[in-house]
Amino acid sequence: MRIQFLLCVVTAATLGACANRAPMMGPYSQTSLPDAVKVPAGHSVVIETVAAGDITYQCRAKKDMDSQFEWVFAGPSASLKDRNGILIGKYYGPPATWENMDGSKLTGTQVAVAPNGEGNIPSQLVKANPAVGPGAMQGVSYIQRVATQGGVAPKGVCAKGNEGEKQVVSYKADYIFYRAM
Rank of each mutant, 00 (worst) to 15 (best):
I3R: 15
L6D: 07
L7S: 12
L7A: 13
V10E: 09
T11R: 13
G16F: 07
C18T: 12
A19F: 02
N20S: 15
P23I: 00
M24K: 15
M25T: 13
P27H: 08
P27W: 00
A36N: 08
V37Y: 02
V37E: 05
V37R: 05
V39C: 04
A41Q: 12
H43K: 10
S44N: 13
V45K: 06
V45Y: 04
V46P: 06
E48A: 10
E48P: 08
A52S: 15
T56C: 08
Y57T: 04
Q58P: 03
Q58N: 07
K63F: 11
S67D: 14
S67A: 13
Q68H: 09
F69L: 09
F69P: 09
A74E: 10
A74D: 10
P76W: 01
S77R: 15
D82S: 07
D82M: 07
D82L: 05
D82V: 04
R83K: 15
R83G: 11
N84F: 10
I88Q: 01
I88Y: 01
K90A: 11
K90G: 11
Y92M: 10
Y92Q: 10
P94T: 03
P95H: 01
A96C: 03
W98Q: 05
G103A: 04
S104G: 06
T107V: 09
Q110E: 13
A114P: 06
N116F: 07
I121N: 00
P122Y: 00
L125I: 01
K127P: 02
K127Q: 08
N129D: 12
A131Q: 02
V132I: 14
P134C: 13
G135H: 03
G135T: 00
Q138K: 12
V140W: 00
I143H: 03
Q144S: 05
Q144Y: 00
R145H: 00
T148V: 06
V152Q: 07
V152L: 08
A153G: 02
P154E: 02
K155T: 15
V157T: 15
K160H: 10
E163S: 13
G164S: 05
G164Q: 05
Q167Y: 04
Q167T: 09
V169A: 02
K172M: 11
I176W: 01
Y178V: 10
Y178F: 14
R179C: 08
R179K: 15
M181C: 15
